[in-house]
């Protein structure tokens, strides 16, 4: 028996929304595949539908048409809870606006996915992850007590703490200045290499996209090689 190890695959993926002026097609029949350990960047102008595509591929939203397979399981046939369970521990996220829980410390934020995935010794693993992003001294700080770069490093620690097989990153340096953004992308790619995770990066930053194995351009709802 051949085991399909492709972490992410999409076929004829479409997304439309109803608007007062009529139907708007955001994504049109997209085919896409991500190999294990591969890093793919999706580029596109603002409003081109990059984040929508990322949301669909991560199982955060429902497609209008087409199929998505995440770790060999078709998302369209799963309810939201099953998708959540599928993501737990195997998928990591890094967002432009960090998405840390403001009421929790850096350590608690990183512990969250570990506990949800039922990982043993979540505290120790979270401390290690924070150490890797050089925030060992700030583990008890709240997001509001951290700079933007530090918050993103916590988000990266949270994304990598479970040693995911697949990482989704949505404009990870979009909220940061160039120097901090450079350090953050360096950190993200280094950690990805260490654990061998596949990466789907959505960005409009061509320099960041250059670090990926493959670059695709989303334009007019269609995905093509950049």
């Amino acid at each position: 028996m051949v085991v399909d190890s492709t972490p992410l695959r999409a076929r004829r993926l479409s997304k439309s929304i109803a608007a007062p002026a009529g139907r708007i097609d955001i994504l049109r029949s997209i085919d896409f595949e991500l190999a294990p350990g591969e890093a793919v960047a999706i580029l596109g102008a603002s409003g081109s539908g990059k984040s929508t595509l990322l949301g669909l591929l991560a199982g955060l939203d429902d497609a209008s048409d087409g199929e998505i397979e995440l770790f060999g399981r078709e998302l369209g046939r799963m309810d939201e809870d099953s998708r959540s369970l599928l993501r737990a521990g195997r998928v990591g996220f890094v967002f432009q606006s960090f998405q840390l829980l403001p009421g929790m410390t850096a350590l608690e934020n990183v512990m969250l996915p570990l506990e949800l995935a039922g990982t043993a010794a979540p505290r120790r693993r979270a401390e290690e992850a924070l150490e890797q992003v050089e925030l060992a001294r700030r583990i008890h700080h709240y997001p509001s007590q951290l700079s933007g770069g530090e918050q993103q490093r916590v988000a990266i620690a949270r994304a990598f703490a479970t040693r995911p097989e697949l990482l989704f990153a949505d404009e990870p340096t979009g909220s940061l200045d160039q120097a901090t953004g450079g350090r953050i992308s360096e950190l993200m790619f280094r950690l990805r290499r260490e654990i061998g995770a596949a990466l789907l990066l959505v960005t409009h930053d061509a320099h960041l996209a250059q670090r990926c194995d493959r670059r695709l351009l989303l334009q007019g709802g269609v995905l093509e090689a950049a």
Binding site: A58, L60, E80, D81, S84, L85, L86, R87, A88, G89, V91, F93, Q99, L101, G103, L112, P113, L116, A117, R158
Partner: peptide, 16 residues
């Protein structure tokens, strides 16, 4: 709402 969305994104099920 935000915290719940993040938790769901990180793998928390609705019953949880």
């Amino acid at each position: 709402a935000d915290a719940s969305a993040i938790l769901r994104c990180l793998g928390a099920t609705r019953p949880l």
